[in-house]
């Protein structure tokens, strides 16, 4: 069976000619369903570019990305959007919630694009908010929530569609360390209990410790690929 995500010689070059910079210099990578993978490395090492490509937000300059065996480079903008709509969830460092919009409506948004009816949408959004421990905060807008709570709303928005993969770009970058560990526990729970594959970019080793596999990036290549017993596995 084909791996869930497979990169084959993926290169990403920004700019042209003299100014061209290779953010990714030929990456081979396979991620199986159910894995929790952390991407680590210094800034500019290519880990975020890799995540964007895995999230179908960006396309490789060369090489092939297969999502469930489907060659993504042959898809157009709309088909990429549909792939994101039906299989992917995103959690960003800056939360990226719609401002002045209630938590409930933020979580409902992906379901709007899936064409789910209003009543069903609210039911599922409430359930997702409950799953991240935000029951009773449905009417709060992002400005009325703390950073940790905002990121929980973002996680609820990512999981409300029951995605195959959640892609998280430094999800704990903007919250204090106590909240960060709570958020990681939440992601580990999603991975274990719902079998959602998680790919997370981080530069903090104690966050990467929650993952079952750590990929280390340097200058656009993968220099380390280690499997580990995730933290909290025993707990």
């Amino acid at each position: 069976m084909a791996p869930l995500l497979a990169l084959d010689g993926v290169t990403k070059i920004y700019g042209r000619g003299e100014a061209a910079v290779a953010a990714l210099a030929g990456i081979d990578l396979e991620i199986a369903a159910g894995e929790f993978v952390a991407l680590m490395g210094p800034s500019g090492s290519g880990k975020s570019t890799c995540l964007n490509i895995l999230g179908c937000l960006d396309v490789p300059t060369a090489g092939e990305y297969r999502f469930r065996g489907v060659a993504v480079s042959r898809l157009d903008r709309d088909q990429l959007a549909l792939l994101r709509r039906h299989y992917l969830g995103f959690v960003f460092q800056g939360f990226n919630l719609l401002p002045r919009t209630s938590a409930l409506e933020n979580v409902e948004l992906p379901l709007v694009y899936r064409g789910v009816g209003g009543r069903e949408r609210r039911r599922r959004a409430r359930a997702a908010l409950a799953a991240v421990g935000l029951e009773g905060r449905e009417r709060h807008t992002p400005a009325q929530l703390s950073g940790g709570q905002q990121q929980r709303v973002a996680i609820a928005r990512a999981l409300v569609t029951d995605p195959a993969v959640v892609l998280a770009d430094e999800p704990t970058g903007n919250v204090d360390s106590a909240r960060a560990h709570e958020l990681m526990a939440l992601l580990v729970g999603l991975n274990r209990e719902r079998g959602i594959t998680i790919v997370m970019v981080t530069h903090e080793a104690d966050m990467a410790a929650y993952a079952g596999r750590v990929l280390t990036f340097h200058d656009g290549t993968i220099v380390g690929d280690e499997r580990q017993a995730p933290q909290g596995a025993a707990a």
């Binding site: 999230g55 937000l57 903008r77 709309d78 959007a81 549909l82 994101r84 709509r85 039906h86 992917l88 969830g89 995103f90 990226n96 919630l97 719609l98 401002p99 948004l109 992906p110 694009y113 899936r114 928005r157 569609t161």
Partner: peptide
Amino acid sequence: TREIGIRLAIGARGRD
């Protein structure tokens, strides 16, 4: 712009 980015990321097509 950021809102548009969010909508595109969570599955809105250009036409949406």
